[in-house]
């Protein structure tokens, strides 16, 4: 265990004398106090909180913010705290709390952002990237640092979504630059259903690009009738709703591609291919190589299917099925 390099004084402190707003050393966000309250109820406070005295003789919390909140909720009047010397350096206080937190729990992404943001008051970017991002288990580079530093500006509802990993960090970074109403709308959409982070990432780009193309606010794109109908559809489960919304947005984002895929499917359907035979077009119709898939169990069956296939009229036009679409 790390040796204590500072002196603190144990003191019985009135809870009401402690400033319990999230102070300059706080790195707690979106936590559940119940397990802690339960533990305190049963065993008392095992580790005393650390405090610093303020000029008005009240105290600010260095470490133990959540313990003190739990005590207040449990109705305790006072508790033993360790009071740090008045000249205790703020950076050291911050590191003390960081150390305390890292020993006992995993920080969520918002909390990591809080740590990094607080460190910027004392250290330069290089030091933070090299020495602190690795211990917070974050890729150590400036872009990621920037992303984390921006999280604190987000509305609490969005922060909760990030902390609970219902909204991806990348999305949080991207929606920082859009308006508040739009951001909250996106947060609602992604947290009301079960989206994978990849689905969120693909969809947000489509939404932003559709809005930009049509010169409309993002909110309006998300609030469109088709999407609202899906969201209100009681016969669909959450994954089905996500799938349906992705489909709606894809059709709007890629109208020509979708039209082409449709034409190709109709063309193939009209061919009446023998069962177990599938024609796969090149991805996005970009290349020129089509694939033929034949499912068979016996050589005889394969032969029959091949004969049937070679007698099929219209097969030679198969690569032209999609070319009649209107584009642009």
């Amino acid at each position: 265990m790390e040796k204590k390099a500072f002196k603190s004084t144990p003191l019985q402190v009135e809870i009401s004398d402690i400033d319990l707003s999230p102070g300059p050393f706080c790195m707690s966000f979106n936590f559940d106090l119940e397990p802690l309250k339960d533990s305190i109820d049963r065993f008392g406070v095992l580790n005393p909180p650390y405090l610093l005295k303020k000029s008005d003789n009240n105290f600010i919390v260095v470490a133990g913010y959540r313990r003190l909140l739990a005590l207040r909720e449990l109705g305790w009047q006072d508790t033993v705290c360790q009071v740090l010397p008045d000249n205790f350096p703020p950076l050291k206080a911050l590191l003390l709390n960081l150390n305390d937190n890292l020993l006992h729990r995993k920080l969520n992404n918002i909390e990591k952002g809080m740590v990094l943001k607080r460190l910027t008051s004392f250290l330069n970017t290089e030091e933070i990237v090299a020495n602190f991002m690795p211990i917070l288990d974050i890729p150590a580079n400036r872009q990621t640092l920037e992303l984390f530093l921006g999280l604190e500006e987000l509305e609490d509802t969005v922060k909760v979504s990030v902390a609970m990993e219902r909204l991806s960090l990348r999305i949080a970074g991207l929606i920082r630059s859009i308006g508040k109403d739009d951001r909250l709308k996106i947060n609602d959409l992604f947290t009301s259903l079960k989206w994978s982070f990849n689905q969120q990432w693909e969809t947000i780009q489509w939404i932003i690009e559709i809005a930009s193309r049509e010169g409309r606010p993002i909110k309006e794109i998300v609030d469109e009738r088709q999407i609202i109908e899906v969201l209100n559809n009681n016969r669909m489960n959450k994954p089905q709703k996500v799938k349906a919304i992705v489909k709606i947005l894809k059709a709007r984002r890629f109208p020509s591609l979708l039209e082409t895929e449709k034409l190709f499917k109709i063309g193939i359907f009209n061919l009446s291919l023998p069962s177990g035979i599938k024609i796969i077009p090149p991805p996005f119709f970009e290349g020129i190589d089509y694939k033929l898939e034949i499912v068979f169990t016996k050589g005889k069956e394969l032969k029959e299917k091949l004969t049937e296939l070679s007698n099929l009229s219209g097969l030679e036009k198969i690569t032209d099925f999609w070319k009649g679409a209107e584009h642009g």
């Binding site: 930009s212 984002r253 970009e286």
Partner: peptide
């Protein structure tokens, strides 16, 4: 930020670059 040059229908090309959908 806010550029609209990505608004077209881009799909992955054979060389990994995104290009407008071929018919476009």
């Amino acid at each position: 930020p806010g550029t609209n040059i990505f608004n077209g229908e881009f799909v992955p090309g054979l060389d990994g670059k995104f290009r407008y959908f071929k018919p476009i």
